[in-house]
Simulated assay, not measured.
Amino acid sequence: MLMAHPVVLRDLVEQYETLRALHASEADSERVRQRMEDVAYTLCVSTGTRDVDAAMIAARHRLPGARTEDDSVLSRT
C-alpha cells in the first residue's frame, strides 16, 4: 500500500478537525459539509481505511512523534 507523506497527513487531519468544528458551529453550510466529506474521503484513501474515525487514528499514528504503543485511542468499556 502506498503511504501518504506525514506532512500531507498532518494537513488533512488539521483540515478535517477545522471543518468539523465549523460544521458544528455553522447552520449546516453546504460548502463546509461538502469539503468535510472530500477531506474525509482523502483521509480514508491516504490511510487505507474505510471510515473517517479509523482514518484519523491511522493518520495520527503515522505522524512524527506518534507513540505506536499508545492505546489511548481505544475505548475502554
Rank of each mutant, 00 (worst) to 15 (best):
D51V: 00
A4Q: 05
G48N: 11
Y41L: 11
H5W: 04
R31W: 02
E14Q: 13
H5M: 03
A58D: 13
E17Y: 00
A66E: 04
D53E: 15
T42F: 14
R35W: 10
E17S: 05
V39F: 05
E69D: 14
E14C: 03
L74W: 08
H23T: 00
T47M: 14
T68W: 12
A24S: 09
A24L: 09
A4P: 12
D70E: 07
G48R: 08
V32H: 09
Q34E: 14
T18G: 11
R62C: 09
Y41Q: 11
V39H: 05
M56W: 04
D51H: 09
V45M: 14
A40H: 11
R20T: 00
T49F: 11
R76K: 10
Y16I: 01
R10I: 00
S25Y: 00
R60K: 15
L43A: 05
A40V: 02
I57W: 10
D38I: 00
R76P: 00
E26R: 11
L2E: 10
M1S: 08
M36L: 14
R33C: 02
V13L: 14
Q34P: 01
R31Q: 08
V39C: 06
A58G: 10
V7N: 06
A55W: 09
E69G: 10
V52D: 12
L74A: 12
R10F: 03
Y41T: 07
R76H: 04
C44N: 11
E17V: 00
L74F: 10
V52Q: 13
L12Q: 03
A40D: 08
A4W: 04
T42I: 08
V45I: 12
V8R: 13
H5Q: 09
R50V: 00
R62G: 11
R33M: 04
T42S: 15
P64E: 08
V39N: 03
R50H: 07
S46F: 05
S75H: 10
V32C: 05
M36D: 01
A40W: 11
A54W: 12
E17H: 03
R76Y: 02
H5I: 00
L2Y: 03
T18I: 02
P64G: 08
E30K: 13
E37M: 10
L22S: 06
R76F: 01
A55D: 06
V45F: 13
E26N: 11
A55C: 11
A24Q: 12
L22D: 07
L22E: 10
G65V: 00
A40G: 14
V7A: 10
D71R: 13
D70I: 04
H5G: 02
A27V: 01
P64R: 08
R31T: 01
A4L: 04
L9M: 07
E14M: 09
M1Y: 11
V73E: 14
E14H: 07
H5E: 12
V8M: 06
S75G: 07
V32I: 14
M56R: 15
T42R: 15
T68A: 13
A40C: 08
L19C: 02
A21L: 06
L9P: 03
D70V: 03
D71K: 12
L12C: 03
A4T: 00
